[in-house]
Nucleic acid binder design. Sequence first.
DNA 1: CACAATCTCTGACCTTAGTCAGAGAACGCC
DNA 2: GGCGTTCTCTGACTAAGGTCAGAGATTGTG
Lengths: 287, 287
Amino acid sequence: MDQIELVRDFNRFYTQRLGVLNDHYLGQRRPLGEARLLFEIGDGAGLRELRSRLGLDSGYLSRLLRSLSGDGLVTVGPHPTDGRVRTAVLTEAGQRERADLEARSRESVAALLDPLTPAQRERLLEAQGQVRRLTRLATVTIEAVPDDAPPARACLQAYAAELDLRFPEGYDPAALIAPGALTEGTFLLAREDGRPVGCGLWQGSGPVAEIRHVWVSPDARGLGLGRRLLAALERDAAGHGITSIRLGTHSVLAEAIALYRAGGYREVQSDDSSPYNQLAFEKRLVL
Amino acid sequence: MDQIELVRDFNRFYTQRLGVLNDHYLGQRRPLGEARLLFEIGDGAGLRELRSRLGLDSGYLSRLLRSLSGDGLVTVGPHPTDGRVRTAVLTEAGQRERADLEARSRESVAALLDPLTPAQRERLLEAQGQVRRLTRLATVTIEAVPDDAPPARACLQAYAAELDLRFPEGYDPAALIAPGALTEGTFLLAREDGRPVGCGLWQGSGPVAEIRHVWVSPDARGLGLGRRLLAALERDAAGHGITSIRLGTHSVLAEAIALYRAGGYREVQSDDSSPYNQLAFEKRLVL
DNA sequence: CACAATCTCTGACCTTAGTCAGAGAACGCC
DNA sequence: GGCGTTCTCTGACTAAGGTCAGAGATTGTG
C-alpha cells in the first residue's frame, strides 16, 4: 500500500470509529443539526452569528430554533442594540440538555480511554497531536498577495504588536514595509481555512535579496509553518533570479534564529542599518 | 484541558477535515449511499451480503440498486446456486464510475500530502498508525465465556493450526483443553466489533494457577492485545484467590516469551509434562 | 410433499437536512 | 424623510436516507 492508500485507509477507519462514537453518545435524542445548535448557542448568541458559524441557511436556522423552542429548550428574544437581529438563549431545560449531551460525549470518550494504560493514553494523545499538527500544516495555503492587501496588513500589524512586546526597546511600526512599497519582491500570505495565519516577504533586485517580516500567528505555531514559509520565499525568490538571501533578526527572537540556522543560513557580519537587526544571516540558494 | 477533552477536540477536528475531504472528492456526483454501494459491489456481490456489510434495509438496498441500474452502472442477476438470492454486478460504465470516484479520492489525499516534506509524510503515517493501533486496542472487549462456546473453540482451533505450522514437530489438537473441561478457571475471549480476535485461560484450584492458550489473531497483532489479555487473566485469577501464576511455553514462540518477560514473569525450572512446554515461567500476583 | 424460513421487491410513509423566493421589520446613510 | 441594505421569518419545495409491512418466489427440513 502506498502512502495515499494508507492515509485513505486511516480516514476510513477513523470515520467509522467516529460514527460509532457519535451514534452512541447522541443516542438518537436529538438530530445532529439541533444538537450542534444547542452547543453553539451557549450563553446566548445572535442568529446572524450562529448562521455564519454553522453555515446555515437563514430559513433553516429559523426552523431549527422554532423546533428547539417548541421543546422549551431555547427562547429567542430581541438583540439589545440592533432591532433587526434576534438572539437565542438557552432555557434552564436547554442548558440541562446541553450538559447532558456533553456528559454523554465525555462518557463515551472516557469509555474509549478506559482500557488503556496511562502510558498508552499518553501515546494516543501524542499521536493525535502529531496527526493534527501535520494535517493543519498540510492544509495551510501559501499565496502571493500585494503587500497592501488588507489581510497582509493585518498580519504585519500583529507582527509589529508582537515585536513591540518582545523587544526590550519596543518596536516602532514605522519600521514595517510601507503599503505598496514592495515593487521588487513578493509578499507571501499563509491562510488556514481562509484565515490569515502567517506572512513573509522577500525584496531586492540584485542577485542578493532580503527576507523580512516572517511571522506566524501564535495559534499556528509548532506546526512547521515558519519552515514552509521560508522555503516558499526562497523558491519564489529563486524563480526570480535571486541567488542569495540575506536577512537580519533581533537577538531575542530565539525561535526565528533557530529556524534560520536549521534552514541552512549561516551567521555573517551584520552591516544592517536597522537597530532591530542585531544578527545577520546568509544563504546561497541552490537551484 | 484534560485527556478526554483533548480526544474530543481531536475528534471534532478530524471530523471536520474528513468532511471537507469527502465533499471535495465526492463532488456531488453521487449520493453517499450510492457511492458506497458502488465500492462495495466490486466484482459482484450477493444482495444479502451487501445488506449485511453496509447495514442496509432490504427495501432501501433494492431502491438504491434500481437507481444505479437505471443509470446503467449495475446489473442485477440471479445467484448461481441459490435462486432466492440475487447478485449485483458492475457494468463497464459502473466500473468506470467507481474508478473515477477512487481516483478523485486518491487525488484529494494526494493534494493533502503534497505540501509536506517526505519526512513529514513519514511522521504523519507513523502517527496515524499509532492512533489507529491504540484506538483498535481500546475498543477490543474482553469477556469471560464458557470454554465450549463456539467463538472460543474457533479461537482455539486457529491457535492449534498456527502452532502446528510453527512448531517443528507440529502440534496435536488433542493437546487443547477439551470442551467443557475448564471447571476451575476462566476462559477469556477478546472481540473486536464482535469478531473474536484473541483468547486465553487460567485454570487451577490451588494458590498457583496455570495460564494457557493465550492467542491473538494475526490481524490484531502489534496492538498490545496480548499484554491486555495477560493482565485481564491475572486480574481475574487474583479475584478468585490465586496468588501465583505458572505457565509453560515453546522455545520457538519468541514473542510470547518476550510478552511474559515484559509482564514480570521469571523463568523457572520446567517440570511440565507437555512436550510443547520447553520453558516455564512464574509470577507472583500482587493485589 | 407440506410448511416454515429465507430472500428480494414494492408501496407507503417518515425524518433530517437543506434550498429558494419573497415579505416585513429595522437600520444606516444621505 | 427617503431609500437601499440587513436581518429574520414563512411557505413551498427537494433530495437523501431510511423504516415498515406485506407479497411473491425459492429453498431447506421434517
